[in-house]
Amino acid sequence: MKKPYIAITFGDVSGVGPEIVLKTCLEKRVYDVCNPVVIGDKKVFERAVKDFNLELKVNVISKLNQGKYQLGTVDLIDLDNIDMNDFEYGKVSGQAGKAAYEYIEKAVDLYYNDELNAIATSPINKEALKKGGINFIGHTEILGSLTNVADPLTMFEVDNLRVFFLSRHVSLRKAIDMVKKDRLIDYIERSIIELKKLNVKGTLYVSGLNPHNGENGLFGDEEIKEIIPAIKHCQEEGLDVYGPIPGDSIFYKGFGEKCSGILSLYHDQGHIATKTYDFHRTISLTLGMPVLRTSVDHGTAFDIAGKNIADPISMIESVVLAAKYGEYSKHRN
């Protein structure tokens, strides 16, 4: 069976991205499941190999079929977009922000114009993006723009638990205001479509919003007015969805074999549950686009950048998960 091609982006080179990416390329099980190609800057690669005492060679390529895909050799697409005279670990940098965007842009180009199956991204920095003239707040928005998808879905996976999010980076007050019947119907429908693309079977569970699902309106009426009507509508349409299940028990139930995934109603509801279970192995997926993207769920960690202490486990798991779902790309739009 042909191994999938997975692009791994350097992310913000002033952070831990290059370190965790190159340490990932020393992991045998990564090469066992995929053909990884790194998108970055050769000069940064060489600096990282020296700084972190890594036994790695580089093979610069422009097409995926030029790669060696051998443990110990990094197949690198060199965008040559970092001036090392201005390079520094641990600092917000406009050139690093702009370069991080260009790595993502190149990965999407490889999907459309080569044989790339999926993208695994390392962290970027919102402030650096802005300083570099990139008017996006993060990966999801960048990828949505590059693939012409208005509202990609975010899903976390840890162990056999999968969690979607009705809202992401908004205030809690606004997140509550976004719990509306029509939005829930849309997200339930699209979440089930994406789970089918991933070949995941089972029922989608929908979380409640208020304590004990509001206790019939005593602690809030969103369940009565918005959530239950949305679920009933989807059930009448033949969708395999169940809920609402109170937020204090749904994630425990989500590990059951009958559950395909959970729709969390706001950012921290799902983040707290997954990261408490296993912080380093909680992987973020961006779905609903032509190309699948996985990501570590930690930041650029400027405070430890360049110190050779960054743990690559989340990056490794991200690449392995991208390979697991490599067939997702057959659903090209």
Rank of each mutant, 00 (worst) to 15 (best):
I8P: 03
G11N: 04
S14N: 10
V16E: 05
P18S: 02
E19K: 09
I20A: 09
L22V: 02
L26N: 10
K28R: 08
Y31C: 04
D32A: 11
V33R: 05
C34I: 01
C34R: 00
D41V: 04
K42P: 00
R47E: 08
L54Q: 14
K57P: 06
I61W: 15
N65K: 13
Q66Y: 05
Q66D: 14
Y69S: 04
Q70P: 03
D80Q: 10
D86S: 06
Y89H: 08
G90N: 03
K91F: 05
K91N: 04
G94H: 03
Q95R: 10
A96D: 01
A96S: 15
A99Q: 10
V108F: 03
L110I: 13
L110M: 14
L110N: 14
Y111C: 00
N113A: 10
D114Q: 12
N117T: 01
N117S: 15
S122V: 00
P123T: 02
K131T: 14
N135V: 02
F136I: 06
G138A: 14
H139S: 09
T140D: 12
I142C: 12
M155H: 02
E157D: 03
S171T: 15
K174D: 02
K174N: 02
A175F: 06
R183C: 01
R183T: 10
D186S: 13
E189D: 13
E189V: 05
K197L: 03
G202P: 10
T203L: 02
T203W: 04
V206T: 06
L209H: 03
N210S: 07
E215I: 13
G217D: 13
D221E: 15
P229R: 09
Q235D: 07
L239Y: 15
F255R: 12
E257V: 11
G261Q: 01
I262Q: 03
D268Y: 10
D268I: 07
H271Q: 15
T274C: 15
H280E: 07
P290Q: 06
D297T: 00
H298E: 01
G299R: 05
G306P: 11
K307W: 14
I309W: 08
A310F: 05
A310R: 10
S314T: 03
S318F: 00
S318N: 00
E327N: 13
Y328A: 00
H331P: 01
